[in-house]
């Protein structure tokens, strides 16, 4: 009787702890410390480009401030369209506003014929322009930048 009582409580807490373990593994996955989780991309496949290569895109101003998107080599679409990678909810942005794409090891920003334009630092983007690390890209009320 006493044994079953204690046993049930122990199992109940075991469930909670198992759930917390899942939470912990997710925390590591989100902070980019993937090597810390065993069995997740074991060894190798590490970018050999050093720390100066852009690894993520960070929204620094605007409604989505704080959002991060990790860069994986695929192009990033920015605009109000639902299928954009970064969906802007901003009257000053166009449906398909700008695209960030990788050529070689560099990222290029390209304006897709937006109404209000895309600005790299202070300069208006007219053709594909290389984006250095930490330089703000302004789209409507949103400002994004690349970080390593």
């Amino acid at each position: 009787m006493q044994l079953t009582r204690a046993g049930f409580l122990a199992l109940l807490w075991l469930f909670v702890l198992a759930a917390l373990r899942v939470v912990r593994s997710d925390l590591y996955a989100a902070s980019g410390l993937r090597a810390a989780v065993p069995g997740f991309r074991r060894g190798g496949a590490k970018p050999a480009r050093g720390s100066r290569a852009p690894r993520q895109l960070v929204v620094t101003h605007g409604a989505l401030a704080g959002t991060r998107i990790s860069l994986e080599g695929r192009p990033i679409m920015i605009g109000r369209a639902d299928d954009s990678t970064l969906v802007l909810d901003d009257d000053y942005a166009s449906t398909r506003h700008a695209r960030l794409s990788m050529r070689g090891t560099d990222w290029y920003v390209e304006d897709l014929g937006s109404t209000n334009g895309t600005y790299l630092d202070r300069a208006k983007v007219t053709g594909p322009t290389r984006v250095p690390l930490g330089v703000p890209i302004r789209i409507g009320k949103t400002v994004i930048e690349l970080r390593s």
Binding site: V22, G66, R68
Partner: peptide, 25 residues
Amino acid sequence: TSDGAAPSSATSTNPGLSVPTRRGT
């Protein structure tokens, strides 16, 4: 303003190409 809270509320939105679906868990 929304600017001030930028670094603290940072989250990764699409972590990695091979996101585990975790349905087994």
